[in-house]
Computed example of a mutant assay.
Amino acid sequence: MIITGDDSEYIAFVKARLRDQFLMTDLGPLRYFLGIEVSSTSDGFYISQEKYIQDLLARAALGDERTVETPMELNVKLQPTDGDPLPDPTRYRHLVGSLVYLAVTRPDISYLVHILSQFVSAPTTVHYSHLLRVLRYLRGTITRRLLFPRSSSLQLQCYSDATWASDPSDRRSLSAYCVFLGGSLIAWKTKKQTSVSRSSVDVELRAMALLTAEVTWLRWLLEDFGVSITTPTLVLSDITCAISVARDPVKHELTNHIGVDAF
């Protein structure tokens, strides 16, 4: 259990009440929780999964010490029929499942994990080779961390993108977004769209709709935590340029203002 807040006396009170009801041990300041490492510095909080990656590489038992600069080659489009079926897919499924949890602190592999997880039912030798490439990438970037600065603005800034008909098997597109609160990355996702789009504009609008729903939920969540977001949320996309999303406090509706300056 993680207990957090800005009132140390009340935190101590909560822990005392919990200790009265349950058998518990106070582990002190947060440093390690469910495979996630947390370090506190004067700049802010860093979270990482370096030890988790080390354990994952040990379980993978790679036969060399090579590293790669990117987790996947450019313009690669995997299909279910690529390569020969693996005689035992258990290892592939185990490693991909571990990568899913690793994406909690490594947004740079989110897209690859989404792609590789589509083949867990019937993985092939080609899929497995791309999985090993991701592991070699992680070996070379094992020290990367996410920073949550101590001082930061409370403006939400979001980025949206999509790939049109990127899946060669069903021609469906991918939506992707990331959301920053000031300088802190707080949400990201890669998701296959549910229907086939006829144009790249349609794909981008669907991606923007997914992001808008996430932004609305985040603003409500932050308000529940007592964080008031009074500034408009800046949403950037490679096709719609800049969109300022603000919620009407009376009607609880979103108003979109489309910019005309490309970035």
Score class of each variant (00 low, 15 high):
Leu138Glu: 07
Leu138Phe: 11
Leu138His: 03
Leu138Asp: 02
Leu138Thr: 02
Leu138Cys: 10
Arg139Tyr: 11
Arg139Pro: 09
Arg139His: 10
Arg139Glu: 05
Gly140Gln: 01
Gly140Val: 10
Gly140Tyr: 11
Thr141Glu: 06
Thr141Ala: 12
Ile142Trp: 10
Ile142Thr: 03
Thr143Gly: 07
Thr143Ala: 14
Thr143Ile: 04
Thr143Cys: 04
Thr143Lys: 02
Arg144Thr: 05
Arg144Ser: 11
Arg144Cys: 07
Arg144Met: 14
Arg144Asp: 14
Arg145Gly: 08
Arg145Val: 13
Arg145Asp: 11
Arg145Pro: 03
Leu146Phe: 10
Leu146Gly: 02
Leu147Cys: 10
Leu147Ile: 01
Leu147Met: 13
Phe148Gln: 04
Phe148His: 09
Phe148Thr: 00
Pro149Ile: 02
Pro149His: 06
Arg150Trp: 15
Arg150Tyr: 14
Arg150Met: 10
Ser151Glu: 14
Ser151Ala: 11
Ser151Leu: 12
Ser152Ala: 06
Ser152Thr: 04
Ser152Tyr: 14
Ser152Phe: 08
Ser152Gln: 13
Ser153Leu: 14
Gln155Asn: 15
Gln155His: 13
Gln155Ile: 12
Gln155Cys: 15
Gln155Ala: 13
Leu156Phe: 15
Leu156Tyr: 08
Gln157Glu: 15
Ser160His: 00
Ser160Leu: 08
Ser160Gln: 04
Asp161His: 04
Thr163Glu: 15
Thr163Cys: 10
Thr163Tyr: 06
Trp164Ser: 01
Ser166Ala: 15
Ser166Met: 03
Ser166Gly: 09
Ser166Pro: 00
Ser166Gln: 03
Asp167Gln: 05
Pro168Glu: 09
Pro168Phe: 07
Pro168Ile: 09
Pro168Met: 13
Pro168Tyr: 11
Pro168His: 07
Pro168Thr: 01
Ser169Lys: 01
Asp170Tyr: 00
Asp170His: 00
Arg171Pro: 11
Ser173Ile: 01
Ser173Cys: 06
Ser173Thr: 03
Ser173Asp: 02
Leu174Asn: 03
Ser175Lys: 00
Ala176Ser: 13
Ala176Asp: 05
Tyr177Cys: 01
Tyr177Lys: 03
Tyr177Ala: 02
Cys178Trp: 04
Val179Met: 11
Val179Phe: 13
Val179Ser: 06
Phe180Cys: 01
Phe180Gly: 02
Leu181Lys: 02
Leu181Asn: 08
Leu181Tyr: 12
Gly183Gln: 08
Gly183Asp: 15
Ser184Cys: 12
Ser184Pro: 14
Ser184Glu: 12
Ser184Trp: 13
Ser184Asp: 04
